[in-house]
């Protein structure tokens, strides 16, 4: 009897201690993550005044409006295209660079630094540089095009090219990060596997397909997931390069949220879009874990 009480007391006190240990993170998450999340969900059901205070409960009217709005459909299309343009190309490029930089030759440190250097550039600074290069009147790209007698392009002003132009600069900005992570993954692969392969006399492609990629798959999976989430949330380069234009062709959801909340002062509508974006990313991430992770080989 006495022992039982003791045991109970121990579990209770250990539960209390456990909670105490968790308290800081629960508090931080609660204040900075869960509270804003539920507040957003709440606001998305209201029409708000210009200061963002809920004024009138409208149920799902904000969502209904979004699904009927051609402008929101353009946003979704732009967001998906943006992810499609940036993620695969960016990762393949980073992988190629990482494979090159993984070779042990003299002076490789210089190239490793160069390839990863974009990680040190802020989005704002690099966007300004790209904006100058894209400038139709004085930018370098149009100077090159006209030097080789090709018609000049309105890089950021033509709705057909604007999103691609932003995507190109984004790939440049993000490659440094992916490169660094992938290079780290490559360096972790056991050297003996390659030695065995050399003894067996297999070709380079075989080595890449059957040793490097499977061993790198956990790292690749991480990079893909993080890149997709990052692409969904791109903001700075769009704000600086195009401001969502021309004809809303680069008005990705995150930028549409910003415009509705902080320029048009329609916080309710912005919250509704934020909720939709949240579920969108959640869905994609779950999908990745369900499908993508099956191909991941953990050592």
């Amino acid at each position: 009897m006495k022992r039982k009480i003791n045991k109970k007391r121990i579990t209770r006190s250990s539960f209390g201690a456990g909670m105490l240990y968790l308290l800081p993170s629960i508090l931080l998450f609660g204040i900075f993550l869960f509270y804003p999340m539920f507040k957003t969900l709440y606001l998305s059901l209201f029409w708000t005044d210009t200061q963002g205070n809920p004024v009138q409960y409208v149920g799902l009217e904000n969502f209904m409006y979004l699904f009927e709005s051609p402008s929101f459909m353009t946003s979704i299309k732009a967001t998906l295209l943006f992810v499609l343009y940036t993620v695969p190309v960016g990762i393949v490029l980073a992988l190629i660079l990482a494979l090159l930089a993984n070779e042990n030759v003299k002076g490789i440190g210089f190239f490793r630094t160069m390839f990863s250097s974009t990680i040190g550039m802020s989005v704002a600074a690099s966007s300004v540089i790209w904006m100058l290069m894209y400038n139709p009147a004085i930018g370098i790209f149009n100077k090159i095009l006209s030097a080789i007698h090709l018609p000049e392009l309105q890089w950021l002003l033509d709705p057909d090219y604007a999103l691609i132009s932003v995507a190109i600069s984004t790939i440049w900005m993000n490659t440094g990060f992916s490169f660094l992570i992938l290079l780290g993954g490559l360096q972790n692969i056991d050297e003996r596997l390659y030695e065995n392969a050399r003894i067996a006399g297999v070709g380079t492609w075989y080595k890449l397909r059957n040793i490097t990629l499977p061993m790198l798959s956990p790292t690749l999976f991480f990079v893909v997931t993080v890149s997709i989430i990052g692409a969904f949330q791109s903001f700075g380069q769009i704000d600086i390069l195009t401001g969502g234009g021309p004809m809303e062709s680069t008005n990705v959801i995150v930028y549409a949220i910003y415009k509705d909340a902080f320029i048009n002062y329609d916080v309710g509508l912005a919250s509704a879009q934020a909720v939709l974006l949240f579920f969108c990313i959640l869905f994609v991430t779950i999908l990745q874990f369900k499908i993508g992770e099956r191909r991941v080989h953990y050592q």
């Binding site: 904006m131 309105q154 002003l157 401001g243």
Partner: peptide
């Protein structure tokens, strides 16, 4: 000439 949305441009 379509010069976009930037005063600088």
């Amino acid at each position: 000439y379509n010069s976009g949305t930037s005063w600088d441009d």
